[in-house]
Design a binder for these strands. Structure first.
Lengths: 343, 343
DNA sequence: ACCGGCCCTGAATGCGCTTTCAGTAAGCGC
DNA sequence: GCGCTTACTGAAAGCGCATTCAGGGCCGGT
């Protein structure tokens, strides 16, 4: 038998010798005489029928695929959060569409637009916003009509002007706590490995760290801050740059664990020991840092739970009022990569 | 102005005072008088119009979202491959839908089914198949009609009976090469940390390793093989089990780097040093293993390229003939986690 | 000035499905 | 046995868009 390009409901109905309407009802579990239902189901089975999701969505049936947009799926930070999202989605019998923007704002807008077009019931934005008015307006222009059309949106991390449900990691206070912990270890000369300034996460973490240092009378000079991409290689490069500048810091704070990992590699390659010659700490507590040698000191975020909460927010009604889940995580975890100064 | 739930093309056409057809053509860049086009574009902009992807797909326009199904996005192995897929997809102006089955065969089928329903132009299966006849039949039953309907499918890793384009990592020969390398280091007593037997990848890697050992007259007893999940904790558990059994192996081969990482952690927790007390090697060469201490010896796979190739296969015509990209990677990379025996 | 031909526009059709609406047969009370 | 309710089934409308088919300007050619 030459297979047809697409088996349609009409084919099934014809094979079962019933009407389109009956076939549809039988397949969707509505009230139909058992005998007819069996005929329809058998026909569908035999023809390997798969309903056309587009036609179905167009005809009004809501569909069950939510969209998740993150910056980079290869980054363990996002992977862990996405894992949490998927767990909850799975429990709710939802399919998850994971998109990766690779930190290209344009692409982020494009993905939102396409998810809108797909009429996804919910869109999750994982990862901080950009502090860029033009981008914010564009994103808002996409999201507004989506929300008005009944779409649900939730974000993890701070987006300045988005009036949507948010899960907010304790970036500022966490960084401040880390500053205190590091000060307590006796450090007075610090350096920071930063990510792109335009990210709200960078602003929050850097601000929290610097302000806390300032409270203790320790200044952070502009030259003590090196900016690089939020990647392992970005951390490696930033650390190398710092070394090249002849930094005298006894402790380096990387704004993410991934950067910290790169920094440790750079230090190792330069023959410096961690924490013997220099202490290193990160932020996020991605799973792998426990298995490094030395294990990385960091500010812990409950990554999986961040994702779970975001999905839950998107799944429950908010009555048009923005909800915020604050103070998620932010505990300092001191491991082997930081030591008392001079010890 | 009270926003409508959905702005449709008809709204735009009305606002621009043109026909539906003209509005459609203007939006899709077909020949339309500049003046009319501008009117349409302006109206669309003002109304924040987004075409309904379902209606568009239904009306025949092919859409540009390919599906990628992997076992676990939080696993760096899959993340790296997915990264490659996305790179090529991005170059071709395609959107990528990443799904994670969490190694649930049922869910894998469900995702394929839903991608079929979405009429995705291509489906990529990343991750080895299960050696389970029932599952294979079910998957084939989903894929066959999809392929007949013009869908494109490509897989990374071996699927016993799937007649689709494949990218095949050099699992068997790679494992054999690792066996030789380890033998060359003087090891004679081995243990293997294995994953679920039902995975073809496990069969290939385990088989390649064991056979090569056998060639050298070294036997691998059933008790030298411990099975666990393909996760960090799975590796930790398997290694602990091995230790509890009082293994005398001088070298442990984990079937994946992720398991090897867990194994190293277990060893560390038991006060054993790597490679001093015992050598450890993995498989995959995921990016992080370079940054471990000691760096992990492993069999390198060009993960990103695996993904790129799979996407390329799915994007190019195969004239109905199955193509296979063989011998991808498989180079042994000896780093610090393996040492000469007795040294 | 007239006609053929070209290009652009608009009306209409259909993609595959869900759902309303009307219709028919069966079941019940009287 | 007749009329009415109940329970399914089938015909048909329409979801939003791309596209075909005709029709109507406008051009150049003669």
């Amino acid at each position: 038998m030459q297979p047809r390009a697409h088996v349609t409901l009409e084919d099934v109905a014809r094979a079962a010798d019933v009407s389109l309407a009956t076939a549809s009802r039988a397949l969707n579990g509505m009230r139909v005489t058992p005998q007819l239902r069996d005929r329809v189901l058998a026909a569908a089975e035999k023809l390997a029928y798969t309903p056309n999701a587009h036609a179905r969505a167009l005809a009004g049936a809501s569909h069950r695929t939510v969209g998740v947009i993150c910056h980079d799926v290869t980054d363990p930070y996002f992977a862990a959060i996405a894992g949490g999202v998927m767990r909850v989605a799975g429990d709710n019998d939802l399919l998850v569409m994971l998109a990766s923007t690779f930190r290209d704002p344009e692409r982020e807008i494009a993905y939102v637009s396409m998810l809108r077009a797909e009429r996804a019931p919910a869109i999750l934005l994982i990862g901080s916003g950009f502090e860029d008015a033009r981008w914010e307006r564009a994103l808002e222009a996409e999201l507004k009509p989506y929300l008005d059309g009944g779409g649900r949106v939730a974000v993890v991390s701070r987006h300045r002007s988005l009036k949507v449900d948010s899960v907010l990691p304790e970036n500022r206070a966490g960084a401040a706590a880390m500053a205190r912990a590091l000060l307590d270890l006796g450090h007075r000369r610090f350096a920071v490995l930063s990510g792109p300034r335009a990210l709200t996460t960078v602003a929050d973490r850097l601000g929290g760290f610097r302000d806390e240092l300032a409270k203790a009378g320790v200044a952070l000079a502009p030259t003590d801050i090196v900016e690089g991409p939020f990647t392992r290689d970005g951390g490696y490069g930033a650390m190398s740059e710092l070394l090249a500048r002849g930094s005298t810091a006894t402790c380096v704070f990387a704004l993410t664990d991934v950067m910290a990992i790169g920094a440790c590699a750079a230090l190792r390659d330069h023959g410096l020991s961690v924490p013997g010659d220099i202490s290193v700490s990160g932020f996020d507590d991605i799973p792998i840092v426990r298995d490094l040698t030395p294990a990385l000191s960091t500010v812990a975020l409950p990554l999986q739970r961040l994702g779970e909460k975001a999905m839950e927010l998107a799944l429950t009604e908010n009555n048009g009022r923005r909800r915020r889940l604050l103070r998620m995580g932010g505990e300092v975890v001191l491991r082997g990569s930081t030591a008392k100064v001079g010890s």
